[in-house]
């Protein structure tokens, strides 16, 4: 792909984030490294709890500092600035304006006591020099773009008066209004029906085409990944375990976890009544008690002795990488 020759807009290196909990310190994401290129959509998938949200919030430095810390070797390079070591003042110039984020649970980031119009207008006041009246108009326009019915009325409503999907769209409008260089979208369309989802994905594509925005798309919907991502990064228990182009990943997964994940997709049509869905047997290891070898070993049908002993490294093979002693191989 020619894209890989251009310079990445975001370079994440050895990013590790730890939480201080009552039971001790846990490393929620461990040595995460990847590049994000301008104009590409990088999908991030993986089992619930594997560290997707923590990765994005670490990049944005949005995790509470009294409860969490990044290991010193962590680096997040954006335009010559290491976000992992940047000051809060530097971060404020980046957040929202250059790198925007759509959060997984809208209620955690919308303020329940302010009308949604006021919240959008506040974002606009940071990132544009529109006057009051223009900001309100812009807020209404943004709501219309995300298919909010009756945006003129909705600007004056509070978050609790909106449906789940409407709240999600307010978040999306907020992230898009600043035309960011990098958009981190954490499950942006889970609460939306597929017709509105198509509209939102179309808006994101538009952003990409117009401003060459790089998009990190976190989603559990592998259909969405197949349809709109260029590359995909798979995570498992805090580790990156595979990165490949979307076609290589779907047609020729190398890591057994990736393969198992793809096999769990419910098939459309050909339904057998009451048939049980395939799952990945077993359970992720506890972050407090990680095995010495591969983190997927307990659940892997191909496990050998060295998988139990040594954790494989994330190694580059051509234009893809994976972390496995016994990659599945097959036609490349």
């Amino acid at each position: 792909m020619s894209k890989t020759k251009t310079k990445p807009v975001l370079e994440v290196r050895n990013l590790s984030t730890c939480f201080k909990t009552d039971q001790g310190v846990v490393t929620a994401i461990d040595d995460v490294s990847f590049d994000l290129y301008p104009g590409e959509t990088l999908g991030i998938v993986g089992e619930s709890g594997c560290g997707k949200t923590v990765t994005s919030k670490s990049i944005m430095r949005l995790l509470p500092e009294h409860l969490s810390f990044q290991k010193p070797e962590s680096r997040v390079m954006y335009g010559g600035l290491n976000l992992a070591a940047a000051t809060e003042a530097e971060m404020r110039t980046v957040r929202g304006d250059k790198i925007a984020m759509i959060f997984q649970e809208p209620m955690t980031s919308l303020n329940p006591v302010f009308k949604i119009g006021a919240q959008l207008e506040e974002a606009l006041s940071y990132h544009t020099d529109l006057d009051r009246k223009a900001r309100r108009q812009r807020a209404i326009d943004m709501l219309r773009q995300v298919e909010m019915p009756e945006p003129e009325r909705r600007v004056d409503e509070y978050p609790h008066q909106l449906s789940g999907g409407m709240r999600q769209r307010v978040m999306i409008a907020m992230a898009l209004c600043c035309e960011p260089e990098v958009l981190i979208a954490d499950e942006p369309t889970t609460a939306l029906d597929v017709t509105i989802q198509a509209q939102i994905l179309d808006l994101m594509e538009g952003l990409k085409n117009k401003f060459n925005t790089a998009i990190m798309l976190i989603t559990h919907d592998l259909g969405v990944v197949a349809q709109i991502c260029d590359r995909v990064m798979v995570m498992y228990a805090g580790r990156v375990i595979e990165v490949a182009s979307v076609r290589d990943l779907f047609h020729n997964p190398q890591h057994p976890y990736t393969q198992a994940l793809l096999r769990s997709i419910p098939k459309s049509g050909g339904r057998q009544k009451g048939e049980r869905l395939p799952t990945i047997k077993g359970i992720v290891p506890s972050l407090f008690n990680l095995p010495p070898g591969c983190r997927f070993q307990d659940r892997c049908e191909y496990r050998e002795e060295r998988c139990v002993r040594d954790e494989p490294l994330l190694e580059q093979h051509g234009n893809r990488s994976y972390r496995c002693h016994l990659p599945l191989g097959g036609a490349q």
């Binding site: 993986g46 997984q104 559990h220 198992a260 769990s264 419910p266 869905l277 395939p278 799952t279």
Partner: peptide, 10 residues
């Protein structure tokens, strides 16, 4: 909707 396909299946 917030679950990956394997946990979803479970």
């Amino acid at each position: 909707s917030a679950l990956d396909v394997s946990i979803q299946a479970q």
